[in-house]
Design a protein around this nucleic acid. Structure first.
Length: 590
RNA sequence: GAUUCCGUAGCUCAGCUGGUAGAGCACAACACUUUUAAUGUUGGGGUCCUGAGUUCGAACCUCAGCGGGAUCACCA
């Protein structure tokens, strides 16, 4: 069921028909071999002017038989010659057409009709020809032949970019409506090529990690997304149901407990790029489904893991930006090793001037109040520390910084600190005011782990709907013995945001979660004809805004009759006979 | 979930104190052989998000709803 088409959309459908009428297939089946991409040509075409040929044109042998394929983005017709630009996956290339070169024979249809009339911005074409440089110096393909590869039926948003003399690019009429950009990401990518670059960088980012970890002989694995017991994090899950087993299943909120089972099983290192799902609020930092990499390495501890994180993230910056420095908003962030390291207590002392390391819960509560940190009575010591840190430290940490040694209450899967009472061997890396990773020396004492889970169960009983659920099989695995292990989780989306200077998680996800747009059920041709409406009258009814049968049924017959006669005249449909009043009444009665 | 801003042509946006809708690009027609936001002339294109209310009259005011953005809350 199509909504009413715009003038331009109707026209493009007609052009498609006309192409077919001329014997030109608008969607040919055969492959199209192109010899180059736009970038390859621009990178390799020489700066220097060569010996000019007799007719005053440059002519390099190696740039003689060139073909390209891409989407037509602009055209400037000047009578019997024309300029156009196509964009392929690597960028744009200007094309130059001449009528007599496209149509060397008497028949000028290919130029006059197909090129000038039937081709639209957005169509995908292939071109053959040779490369030259225009008077103004732009590398251009002089087309001797072109092939329509795909006819586009929707007009494209037109974005114009002008390069100033100082090299800055000014954009006019940018396609910026975020709703349309996210709902129709393909359109966003067509007209905003820098969007494609963001996702390319995201892919490279994951590629660097994969390569780095594979070089260390760690194993990339896959673990269940559908889990009977969700665990490994504190969050509300999405719940679903398996019909054959007739049991509830949950989309994973983390994969931590499965990866640890694999360490128990004997691998030295395992990692997984995991889509996790959390049924919680959405914001520019939260999407219901998001990607984390989790890594577990046997016989290592969190100190060791910090060095790995530094090295790996530095490599990412170098790969994506050829520099350890990355501009993010107002800030320039330098990922060069080594990163600053604070214990949580040191960080709080550094930013507030208060040493809370020796305080009991009551003193800490007072301190929080003095520091204007919003607190409530349910908060224990661990939560208070976390709140103070979140309020006064985290937002100020712009350069990558490790924060170590967290309160045990907040970390039910981390090993107790080897020397510091009440703390665990955990670190987060904070960057641009946000956490980018979370890691610990993993808790492998099964008795301790059971106690921690039971404390979580208590929290759950007290109404914390995000407290962890006890996973008996995971404990069973630990009881067989898991070697000392360092574990790490990095939010791929958030790291991508920083590495690509994007302000919202939606800008690093191809298809961010959106509320579906309510689509009215548009009536089809047969829905109308079933009511006895003549086919030629349907456009008039649609034009009057009756796009669903429900709407039409509610119309007042005499008014509909009058409106239709008026609209028929306005649409200049002289050959269409007006309906009679009885005819109209007949439709609405059915 | 709360607060707030926004929704007008295919796109980007104007639209005064309420008086029947405007521009640029895109589209159509004509002209044009090195243009590049090509140019010149002419023309077509609108459910002003939806629904109700106030009014002689609503794109504009009021209320409700839908969708989106931002901030906050929640969220390891």
């Amino acid at each position: 069921m199509q909504p009413l088409l715009s003038e331009q959309e109707i026209l493009r459908r007609q052009k498609r028909e006309q192409l077919i009428g001329l014997g030109i297939e608008p969607y040919p089946a055969a492959l199209y071999n192109f010899t180059h991409t736009a970038k390859q040509i621009k990178d390799s075409f020489p700066e220097e002017k060569p010996q000019e040929t007799e007719n005053g044109e440059e002519n390099f042998d190696e740039f003689k038989e060139i073909s390209l394929a891409g989407r037509l983005m602009t055209h400037r017709v000047q009578g019997s010659a024309a300029f156009a630009e196509i964009e392929d996956s690597t960028g744009r290339m200007q094309l130059y057409f001449r009528r007599d070169e496209i149509c060397p024979d008497e028949d000028k249809t290919m130029y006059n009709t197909v090129f000038k009339k039937l081709l639209d911005i957005g169509d995908i074409i292939g071109v053959k020809g040779y490369i030259f440089r225009t008077n103004v110096g732009e590398i251009t393909l002089r087309a001797t032949e072109f092939t329509i590869l795909t006819k586009s039926l929707h007009p494209l948003p037109i974005v114009k970019r002008v390069e100033n003399e100082d090299g800055t690019v000014k954009t006019y009429d940018a396609f910026t409506d975020s709703e349309q950009r996210y709902r129709q990401r393909y359109l966003d990518m067509i007209v905003n090529p820098e969007v494609r670059d963001v996702f390319k960088k995201r892919s490279q980012l994951m590629g660097v990690m994969r390569e780095y970890l594979n070089d260390k002989d760690y194993l990339e694995v896959e673990t269940p997304i559908l889990q009977p017991i969700y665990g490994g994090a504190a969050a509300r899950p999405f719940k679903t149901h398996h019909n054959t087993l007739d049991m509830p299943l949950y989309l994973r909120i983390a994969n931590e407990l499965y990866l640890k089972r694999l360490i128990v099983g004997g691998y030295d290192g395992v990692y997984e790029f995991a889509k996790d799902f959390r049924n919680e609020g959405m914001s520019r930092f939260h999407n219901p489904e998001f990607t984390q990499i989790e890594l577990y390495v046997a016989y290592k501890d969190y100190e060791w893991m910090m060095n790995l994180v530094e090295e790996m993230v530095e490599k990412i910056a170098l790969k994506l930006h050829n520099s350890t420095e990355v501009k993010v908003g107002e800030n320039t962030i330098n990922f060069a090793r080594p990163w600053k390291r604070y214990t949580m207590y040191e960080a709080i002392e550094h930013f507030t001037g208060v040493d809370i390391s020796e305080m009991n819960e009551e003193e800490m509560r007072k301190t929080a109040l003095q520091l204007n940190v919003p607190i409530d009575d349910t908060m224990g010591r661990g939560k208070l520390i976390d709140e103070i840190f979140g309020e006064h430290c985290e937002p100020k940490l712009i350069q990558p910084t490790f924060i170590t040694d967290y309160p045990v209450e907040m970390s039910p899967l981390a090993k107790k600190h080897r020397t510091k009472e009440g703390l665990v061997e955990r670190f987060e890396a904070v960057c641009n005011g946000k956490e980018i990773c979370n890691a610990f020396s993993e808790l492998n004492d099964p008795i301790d782990q059971r106690q921690r889970f039971e404390e979580q169960l208590e929290l759950g009983k007290r109404g914390d709907d995000e407290a962890m659920v006890l996973d008996e099989d995971f404990l069973n695995a630990l009881e067989y013995g898991m070697p000392p292990t360092a574990g790490l989780g990095i939010g791929i989306d958030r790291l991508s945001m920083i590495m690509t200077n994007q302000n919202s998680i939606q800008d690093v996800l191809f298809f961010p979660q959106m509320r579906p747009k309510a689509q009215p059920k548009y009536a089809s041709q047969s829905d109308y004809t079933d009511l006895g409406i003549r086919t030629e009258l349907i456009p008039i009814i649609q034009k009057l805004g009756f796009l669903t049968i429900e709407d039409l049924k509610e119309a007042i017959p005499s008014k509909l009759f009058n409106d239709m006669c008026g609209m028929r005249k306005k649409m200049k449909l002289k050959e269409v006979k007006n309906p009679t009043k009885e005819e109209v009444e007949g439709w609405l009665k059915k």
